[in-house]
Design a protein around this nucleic acid. Sequence first.
DNA 1: CTGTTAGCGCTTTCAT
DNA 2: ATGAAAGCGCTAACAG
Lengths: 322, 322
Amino acid sequence: MAALAGVSRQTVTRALNDMDGINDETKQRVLEATKRLGYRPSRFARSLVAREKTRTLGLVVSSFRNPYYTEIAGELLDCAASRNWQVVMASSESAGEAAALHTLIPQVDVVIGHFWTSEKQIEQARNGIPLVVLDRVKPMPGTHSVALDLRSGIEEALHALRAKGARTIGMIDSTNHVLRSSVYAPSTRRRDFEELIGTGRPKAVVAGEESIRGGSRAFVELMRAHPQVDAVLVFNDLMAIGALHAADILNIKVPDRVRVLGIDGLSLGEAVHPPLSTISIDRKALAARALDVVDALAAIDFVETIPIRHVVRPRLLWRESA
Amino acid sequence: MAALAGVSRQTVTRALNDMDGINDETKQRVLEATKRLGYRPSRFARSLVAREKTRTLGLVVSSFRNPYYTEIAGELLDCAASRNWQVVMASSESAGEAAALHTLIPQVDVVIGHFWTSEKQIEQARNGIPLVVLDRVKPMPGTHSVALDLRSGIEEALHALRAKGARTIGMIDSTNHVLRSSVYAPSTRRRDFEELIGTGRPKAVVAGEESIRGGSRAFVELMRAHPQVDAVLVFNDLMAIGALHAADILNIKVPDRVRVLGIDGLSLGEAVHPPLSTISIDRKALAARALDVVDALAAIDFVETIPIRHVVRPRLLWRESA
DNA sequence: CTGTTAGCGCTTTCAT
DNA sequence: ATGAAAGCGCTAACAG
């Protein structure tokens, strides 16, 4: 207690929060004393007694190596700041989603994030805290969500590719969208693709690791196994950039010989050669919708309520690769 | 108070923290009641009374559009998690460093981040909270730091480039490393470069915006103004990737006609053509050193102490562009 | 096994 | 302009 500086505790309070009703001289004296003693008020006690409770949200970031996730994190942070939310982050990349939730939950009012692990695990890990799940196609029971209508984007893309003359459209899928599982399960993007491509046609699909390098390898594999492919839909832009890289090495002309279309809309795609065409996701809108949910929950003081759901539509961004 | 469920508060505590000394049946009853009433214990009160105080650090991220910063953030997050620290983040990209500090400071024990604005502003904004400043060359008085010995890296690089036959070495600098200031001030990297290149030689330096596009533009400008340049040191990898892009368009062969060397060591540099040579910064080490400081400060309960300083050395990573 | 008491460190309200 | 008292919502320690 810094009141040992010759005054009472509330005088200290008054000095530190510069409230009025305090002599300037006293104030200086107190301020000096606090500085000298290295006194810093407890944020816990302060929050406990505050009328305006600190609004804190948790953010689970799936990967710091994929700009898609970090850009979303950035938008979310800006959006949160402007709406007066604090953000505590955890990465699910190394220790997994349940672990990230576990560290976050005691500190926050609500958690936002991408969650690919099983509903059961998440449901158990969230421990009653409201969750805002991003990008997941099927809503998770008991959680709120901001979904992505990728299917309509894929459908539109397929039509457009055909209109541009593509006859055999292949796909590169990601192997590890279900984290921490060694068995490959087809992604929703793949399933949408296969359904939309129609049953009569051959299905040229190959899966690779979710990285630039993984995209390169998968592209090589795809072209070897299915040389007739003249257009490729790629799981995300990072892998698509890898595919472009591989095409360059294999001396396969893009888009003349093969059209390459990514998913995400990373600005990075502008900087590769040829510039990457992509199904673009509006990350600013995604962040804003997520914070809409959070604000709505805060308004009812986070009592359990029926799931809120928003949907964001992607749009096609034609650059040069398709 | 959920004790209206027929028991005392203490019993509620026992049920929720599953401590022993409670009848299983009572426990169930309490748990059900809390669920039904949507009761959630106040994290503020809990932290206030806890023996082990929550360890929380603030992280100011300069940009979510430059993988260098996001990768550091990712490493820091992992490192923090393993050492039992919570991380509250804020971006200084939109509202500035002082604003980021301002939102963080009431919530955290210590702040880590890159700070380019003036010492005075930071000193004032930090308001007594200990700061760990990253990458800054000159130590800021009153703050701790993890510095980067880039100068030695640049020196080594210059020697190596000369040994590879470079005769006229140029540089691309960044215009906006001093955020929120409209006047361009040469970066420390530029000053090191100019000093190391020697006084007798012509200085071919051009500055551009700190992005891929900015790097492209600066490269075009540099080659127009100084056609004799046969090697370029670029402020960071992002801009260097832009330079590579521009070289490709201008049909300037890299590294035959011009060698291009970046700074940072982004993995992204592997995926461009030709793969980018770079002065690589060990971001994992940087994060670890920063957390060493934080742990040291926590050990003395964050009382003001003499500045702690660590230095991380970069190393040259030769790929193909130089 | 359960309830009561005290107190974490601050701010608010009321008295001086 | 300053001090004293009350209480924020929890958990530790002690009774019963």
